[in-house]
Design a protein around this nucleic acid. Structure first.
Length: 459
DNA sequence: TTTTGAGTTGTTCGA
DNA sequence: GTCGAACAACTCAAA
């Protein structure tokens, strides 16, 4: 009887799963998930709760066969594989810094080698695996647009076919899921839900949502214009190639929106590629020169960071975004840029402080996209925004939340202000009648200060 | 080999 | 109100 282990990590689905297809070539498959303390703790209560829910959904979809173990994967995976007499352990390749190191440890584990059990990597969570798209001279791209063109030329596989009935191995000891905190406003987890959300986006003909208007609506936090697929991509409840295959089939009049969305998936691949080549850039400045910038520190800086985290900066669009993050663990992409710019250029704090807070709060928090999105705003990343590009939090609010609906949704102290006047409570006689905080800083002053510090850095 | 134009996401200022 | 320039420096890719 040939057996294999399918070690799930961040690919919690059965459809379009090449590693599952590879594992299913053996007669029996043991589905395994390992709670790794080095990932479990740092992922924070929100992602722990989501992961637990996603694992429950996966377990239900394979008739309760999922085996959950806790501990160091290098020991646990080897022990399980040996105990069930598996010939191979199948995984989707992990390209992030910790995942690569962990998988190498597992591969070299004495227990695996002694039993001649192979660790087989098939597929990855990306459209094109990191390291594959390169310039003619073999070097990786450091600018998005040429990467995107080369990524399109490189192309990708069709979605993997379904494996048919799989004989899941049962009767193996299961430690079960650890207790997780009850989190309000958590998105529904699991592959079925991911596909339902995605299909709903594809089928939508409501104004302000769906593929057709994606190009314009995706910039509007007050509309349901985005796909909301980030968390499902993060946990691999859907593979991005499935999405690309569906996008290729949308009607001609929706191809503009489909093209924009393809670009967003390419950004995800691009930042994974950048982190693959520069694993240090998860923590360190991609452009080291920017580390010498003069950043604020001390009690005032700590108070400013706290006001930003709690959504009490006195800038309505910033506070709405930060409060949505606190409440839902998710924030619209436009808001992520606005609040990040505010932290770095108005409060003069390091991007690393903001990136840490995001990773603690975000249910979709993915290291490569998060860290490099922050580095982009801070002007220290690949293809970074010019440092002098400083968002004005008032005009950004007026432009992307033109009727003020988004701000009123998350900032109750401003609900009495009508329309776009919600973005400028200081201009209303009763703007502060319900306890909304006054502006923490003067944007004009801090903008000039940021530019002066940048000038100083160059000298 | 060298040159050249272009490059996700912006703002302000002055004409 | 509208419009173009200025705000840097560097990489990439095509010519």
């Amino acid at each position: 009887m040939s057996r294999s282990v399918l070690w799930f990590r961040r690919d919690l689905r059965l459809h379009d799963n090449p590693a599952l297809l590879a594992a299913a070539a053996s007669e029996q498959v043991l589905p395994l998930f390992v709670i790794d303390p080095r990932l479990w703790g740092p992922s924070g209560p929100r992602r722990r709760a989501y992961l637990a829910a996603s694992l429950r959904a996966l377990d239900a979809s394979i008739g309760g066969a999922l085996v959950i173990r806790r501990g160091n994967p290098a020991e646990v995976v080897a022990a399980v594989a040996r105990d069930v007499d598996a010939g191979a352990v199948h995984v989707a390749a992990d390209y992030q810094p910790y995942g690569r190191e962990r998988d190498n440890r597992v591969q070299q584990a004495q227990a695996l080698a002694a039993a001649r059990i192979e660790l087989v990597r098939t597929g990855s969570p990306y459209v094109v695996a990191p390291g594959r798209v390169r310039k003619a001279d073999g070097e990786p791209y450091t600018v998005y647009s040429p990467f995107y063109r080369a990524w399109l030329r490189h192309g990708w596989r069709d979605p993997a076919p379904d494996p048919g009935p799989v004989a899941w191995l049962s009767g193996v000891a299961d430690e079960g899921l650890p207790d997780v905190a009850d989190i309000a406003d958590l998105p529904i987890a699991g592959e079925d839900e991911a596909r339902r959300i995605w299909q709903g986006f594809l089928d939508s003909d409501e104004p302000g949502s769906g593929v057709g208007g994606y190009g314009a609506n995706r910039e509007r936090p007050d509309l349901p214009g985005t796909t909301r697929m980030s968390v499902h991509l993060k946990y691999g409840e859907v593979h991005p190639r499935t999405m690309l295959a569906d996008l290729a089939g949308v009607p001609a009049e929706q191809q503009t929106g489909a093209e924009t969305l393809r670009g967003e998936l390419a950004w995800r691949d691009f930042y994974a590629d950048v982190l693959f080549h520069r694993p240090d850039s998860a923590r360190a400045y991609y452009k080291p020169a920017m580390a010498s910038m003069h950043y604020d520190s001390g009690p005032d800086a700590a108070a400013a960071l706290s006001a930003w985290q709690q959504g009490r900066t006195g800038f309505p669009i910033v506070d709405a975004g930060m409060r949505q993050l606190l409440r839902e663990g998710w924030m619209h992409n436009r808001l992520r840029m606005i609040v990040a710019s505010f932290l770095v250029k108005d409060l003069h704090l390091e991007w690393t402080a903001g990136a840490r807070w995001f990773m603690r709060q975000l249910v979709d928090g993915e290291l490569s996209s998060n860290q490099h999105g922050w580095q982009w705003v801070a002007g220290s990343g690949t293809d970074a925004a010019p440092y002098f590009r400083i968002f004005n939090p008032v005009t950004q609010g007026q432009r992307f939340d033109p009727d003020g609906d988004y701000v009123r949704r998350y900032v109750p102290e401003l609900r009495h202000l009508p329309g776009r006047s919600v973005h400028t409570p200081w201009e209303a006689a009763d703007g502060y009648a319900h306890g909304y905080p006054e502006q923490l800083v003067d944007h004009g002053v801090e903008r000039r200060e940021a530019l002066a510090r940048y000038q100083q850095l160059r000298e």
